[in-house]
Amino acid sequence: MINDEYFLAALRLAAGNDPIPSRVSAAARDLFRFRVPRAVTAAFSECAAIRGTRDDDGSHLVRFVAAGLTFDLEVTVGDGLIDVAGQVSPYPGEGALVDVRTPHLTLTARIAHTGHFIATGLPPGWLSVVCHRPGHAPVQTRWVRIRP
């Protein structure tokens, strides 16, 4: 594969006329607060049936699996904001919480006995969910980009 972009990038760096904006650097540094010590990261599941897009209502389904937990997320985009209706299975137990995170806003939700949780009114962009379980390491989903 030809990777001309690296050559072009090196030339651009040498020219120095398009430096990284300070706000981009600052935003990258600020991301460190999203580090979750000891967290297990859940990757996309191989299960294809639940992945994909339902174009009719602007909802998207995605599944992540790790450490014996499955995250099923239904993400709905509307009016420039996103809503997440999720289920963690099996039910992670009393006292478990989820953080639904974007770089600009994190919402903490309780998990119902069915494993369901809801977070609404999030800005589009990068999204990750972390499940905190008493007595266990946290499990976080990979970051995915949600585009309206």
Partner: peptide, 23 residues
């Protein structure tokens, strides 16, 4: 940043790509 811009992204999209990579 230079790689993202060399891929032809606008400044806004380049910022998004850089942020995603750090995440």
């Amino acid at each position: 940043w230079a790689v993202a811009r060399a891929c032809g992204l606008s400044p806004a999209d380049a910022a998004d790509a850089v942020q995603g990579s750090w995440l």
